[in-house]
């Protein structure tokens, strides 16, 4: 079980959180023409790195806020967490 430091609530157990995927994914800009390939990439294509990965997590049973987590996918070590408005 991981312990994750929510930037608002402090250190909490993983079962209060929900994983939200890669935090670097950017939605295609609104109002612009998007090719099928770009849209497909945005929906489905993800990196699957071994090592440091910047992720989104949701403190679903606590403050219900989304935040960023820098985690090692092989060791599960969490290096840093930050609010959405902050840099990791």
């Amino acid at each position: 079980m991981l312990e994750i430091k929510c930037p608002h609530c402090g250190l909490r157990s993983q079962n209060e959180f929900s994983y939200g995927g890669d935090s670097n994914t950017k939605r295609p800009e609104l109002g612009k023409e998007v090719s099928d390939k770009d849209w497909d990439n945005f929906i489905y294509l993800r990196d699957n790195p071994r090592g440091k990965h910047s992720e989104l997590w949701h403190h679903v049973a606590g403050c219900r806020q989304w935040f960023k987590v820098l985690r090692d996918t092989s060791t599960h070590e969490i290096f840093k967490t930050a609010k959405l408005t902050e840099e990791l």
């Binding site: 609530c9 209060e16 049973a61």
Partner: peptide
């Protein structure tokens, strides 16, 4: 509850889970 109940003080609150 997964939180450290020993650390909680009077007039503190916590959003958490109890058996899920």
């Amino acid at each position: 509850c997964p939180i450290n109940i020993n650390e909680i003080q009077v007039d503190n609150c916590a959003g958490t889970v109890f058996n899920g």
